[in-house]
């Protein structure tokens, strides 16, 4: 097939890779079968109650907590030999975390990996949702550091669970109120709390709030794994996900004064890159796959855009591109 050509693997075809690449001495995909079964049961429960955090017996993984142990355990328990895995870290396929996790699964499960969003069947992500629309039959797995959205306001775990059980979420709005009182707007820029299926308030993991609207009625299955906190939760396909806000301070996503310096995209999430000690900077797409795809199609950005114009853009709210 045509898509095969873009898939990165050591061997030529899928089957020969599985035979030759799996490390000896480890079970398929690292975790033992009992653990995988336990995690699958947890996932089923999580999918049945959208947004509800289900405890599970998180295992030690061969990397530190906070580096994606939760997401990796979900991936390990779901991945089959025919799956194609994509791993991103803050949108990029070539960062250390993404490269290591991709290599981990190609060595322990012998699966094919890819950087292209539309080719992947499993996407493990840290802190971003790809710009390319996910389709049904894809699964996106989020690495979650702190699954409890109410944690910073109510430290007592017993009380927090009761608040979830009784749907007492007034305190979450107190947090938003405080933001507006102090900063004049809802200043939370990542891990922006959402209401799932009109019932549970959920932490979407530290994705930028720019990505929040993508979660709403997404055709792909969304799974969230927190290894240190031992929680799994899920948003099934086509589930309503609403970002919390006030009637007079509606939810808004970030805007940028410039377009991507490489591909000229004006609709993707941009990273600010500082170029030197004089404060010059440029913005590039955080989603490397999205950016490369556009560059391949012939789109180009304008790196010379002056910062002065950027300020005008912020005031008028317009995004102009060369």
């Amino acid at each position: 097939m045509n898509r095969q050509s873009n898939i990165q693997s050591k061997a030529g075809t899928k089957n020969s890779c599985i035979d030759s690449c799996i490390m000896e001495g480890y079970n398929y995909a690292y975790l033992d079968e009992q653990t995988k079964r336990m995690i699958r049961r947890t996932i089923l429960k999580a999918v049945a109650i959208p947004g509800h955090q289900v405890p599970f017996g998180s295992r030690e993984m061969p990397l530190p907590y906070g580096w994606g142990t939760g997401g990796m355990q979900i991936t390990a328990s779901l991945i089959g030999s025919k799956d194609i895995l994509k791993v991103i870290d803050q949108g990029a396929d070539d960062t250390t975390n993404a490269v290591s996790i991709r290599r981990f699964f190609s060595r322990t499960a012998g699966v094919l990996t890819t950087t292209r969003t539309q080719e992947a069947t499993l996407i493990q992500t840290r802190h971003r949702i790809p710009e390319t629309h996910l389709i049904k039959d894809q699964i996106i797995i989020y690495q979650v550091p702190i699954p409890e959205p109410l944690r910073f306001i109510e430290p007592r775990d017993k009380e927090v669970r009761r608040m979830h059980a009784l749907k007492e979420y007034g305190i979450m709005y107190v947090k938003l109120y405080e933001d507006i009182a102090r900063h004049g707007r809802i200043a939370k820029a990542f891990d922006y709390p959402v209401l799932v299926n009109g019932r549970y308030i959920m932490s979407p993991s530290p994705i930028p709030k720019f990505d929040n609207p993508k979660m709403n009625r997404m055709p792909a299955l969304q799974l969230f794994g927190a290894g240190r906190e031992k929680r799994i939760y899920a948003v099934p396909p086509y589930t309503e996900v609403k970002s919390l806000d006030f009637d007079d301070y509606p939810f808004e996503v970030e805007r940028w004064p410039l377009c991507c310096a490489l591909c000229g995209s004006d609709s993707s999430y941009l990273d600010e890159i500082i170029l030197d000690d004089k404060g010059s900077k440029l913005f590039v797409c955080s989603d490397t796959d999205h950016c490369n795809k556009r560059v391949d199609k012939g789109y180009r950005g304008n790196q010379e855009k002056p910062v002065q114009e950027a300020k005008t853009c912020i005031r008028t709210g317009e995004r102009k591109c060369a």
């Binding site: 007492e168 007034g170 709005y173 107190v174 507006i180 006030f246």
Partner: peptide
């Protein structure tokens, strides 16, 4: 807090 807990969603 109590107002918002009782459903007021207008800052």
């Amino acid at each position: 807090e109590r107002l918002m807990a009782n459903g007021l969603r207008h800052y």
